[in-house]
């Protein structure tokens, strides 16, 4: 087993208008097979990806927002959402999906995946990564 690295995916784009959000999600799911320490950050318009209640039936595009709820199954359990980005957009955590994972080490207890962090806190988290991917 090679050494585990810390991979972070930084999401700054809204869903649907461009392909970035879905591409990022696919890369995360594929990358999860390599059993690295994966985390996601949602900043700027990236926070819009996690808004709950998305319904794309009127625009003829695939609604991929339910896929975020599968991240826990893929052992992606650290999802950071930047508070400043939410505030600027008139949003709060309540507007986002409630994402959870089951903690294998604690008898599969259900835990929150999303952590609300400040820009300063996120900067520290960025600094602690081995590799950062921006979408």
């Amino acid at each position: 087993m090679s050494q585990v690295k810390k991979f972070m995916y930084v999401n700054r784009r809204p869903p649907y208008g461009t392909i970035y959000a879905w591409e990022s999600l696919e890369v995360v799911l594929i990358g999860a097979a390599f059993e690295q320490d994966v985390s996601l950050a949602f900043v700027d318009d990236g926070v819009f990806q996690l808004i709950k209640g998305q319904d794309t039936s009127g625009i003829g595009m695939k609604n991929f927002s339910p896929t975020y709820a599968a991240l826990g199954d893929y052992d992606v359990t650290k999802i950071y959402v930047e508070k400043e980005s939410l505030d600027e957009r008139g949003l709060s955590l309540d507007d986002l999906q409630h994402l959870t994972y089951e903690d294998e080490d604690e008898d599969w207890a259900e835990k929150d995946s999303i952590q609300l962090v400040s820009r300063a806190e996120l900067a520290t988290i960025f600094a602690g990564q081995d590799v950062l991917f921006n979408f």
């Binding site: 097979a33 695939k62 609604n63 339910p66 599968a70």
Partner: peptide
């Protein structure tokens, strides 16, 4: 139906 993806084998096995 629930997640809009086909799960990877590892995920399928666990689930």
């Amino acid at each position: 139906e629930e997640y809009q993806i086909a799960p990877a084998v590892r995920v399928l096995t666990k689930a």
